[in-house]
Design a protein around this nucleic acid. Structure first.
Lengths: 178, 178
DNA sequence: ATAAGCATGTAAGAGGTTACATGATTTC
DNA sequence: GAAATCATGTAACCTCTTACATGCTTAT
């Protein structure tokens, strides 16, 4: 989508926590934050380059073994300023939740349509697995509930859990009504 | 996003219900289906053209008043076939739910951060309004619960309601924990 | 008359995915 | 030695938004 380049802020936010390489950033999107934003390495590396050109980031080279090079990026004061401004600014753009599956259902008008059960059960299986995985994550990372020193991380994970719970419940409700 | 062109299927699905103009299709995305997919007229008109070139749609001209022309599109058997195939095909691509606000929270580590309350309350207001609007829609369109002849429509709306309910509850929970 | 809504299109540019491309290091 | 993983980048292509552009019709 031709949006406002939110990726740059996410990268700044992640690096602000601690200096990181492009590779490490890429993997962040496989974890919790991937529940609410995704990006591939092909998008991340050019973005790092741009952010450095604009002096929001700097990097130092590291070497593994004999030859393997790695760029470890750190945030600059200007970068921190940009990040803070983004967080402070009211979030108006409700990034719209696209969901292909729900749309498919929309085009099935008849409650007795034979396709419904299969479709709903297929999704139920997927979301059941996802839900248990997220619940495991939550109890593993925050066994005692909200950690005051990692509150944002806790909030994002608990939101992911309740979002999946809702999806799960909705699918079950729908199945019951058939 | 360089995805699989899902918009074409949505257009086919909407037109399959009854012949429509580009203008009317555009307005569909302001209603319930807009909760799960959005598109602007600048994307819809070219897509209609392409779908007609591929013979999934045909159109007839209508005239309003003296001069104002309107293209009313109908689906062809080939178009219906394509639509059915899309619905039948398992939905794997979990179109990821991007949420700028949740990410901002993620970068606030400290539970006592003074920004948290304002941010959460701002969102709470937005989602409260959205939730009441959706609930009104639901009770207006489906006063007796699931309509067997419009089950898909019912499902999508009830999903939107419970999704917003979850968001609302999560925001309130977060506020309580501060 | 004039503003709001009807109606259809195109152009430029940003965001995002898939595929191409290469090479090093670690683990089995 | 082979496979998995680490590590960085580019190219082609598609999707989507914003802005440009035009003209008609209805309601006030």
């Amino acid at each position: 989508m031709a949006q406002k380049n939110i990726l740059q802020f996410i990268i700044l936010g992640l690096i602000n926590d601690h200096p990181q390489t492009g590779y490490e950033l890429t993997k962040s999107f496989d974890n919790d934050i991937g529940e609410f934003w995704s990006a591939k390495h092909s998008q991340i590396y050019p973005q790092l380059k741009t952010l450095e050109e604009k002096q929001y980031l700097t990097h130092t080279m590291e070497v593994s073994g004999e030859k393997l090079e790695r760029k470890r990026y750190s945030i600059t004061p200007a970068g921190q300023h940009l990040l803070t401004a983004w967080i402070a600014e009211p979030t108006i753009n409700q990034t719209n939740g696209k969901d292909e599956f729900v749309l498919k259902l929309y085009f099935i008008h008849d409650q007795t349509d034979p396709r419904l059960t299969t479709m709903l059960e297929e999704q139920l299986q997927y979301h059941t697995e996802k839900l248990t995985h997220l619940k495991n994550q939550l109890s593993k990372k925050f066994p005692d509930g909200g950690d005051p020193a990692n509150f944002g991380h806790y909030l994002i994970l608990s939101h992911a859990v309740s979002r999946e719970t809702e999806y799960y419940d909705w699918l079950n409700d729908a199945l019951k009504q058939i």
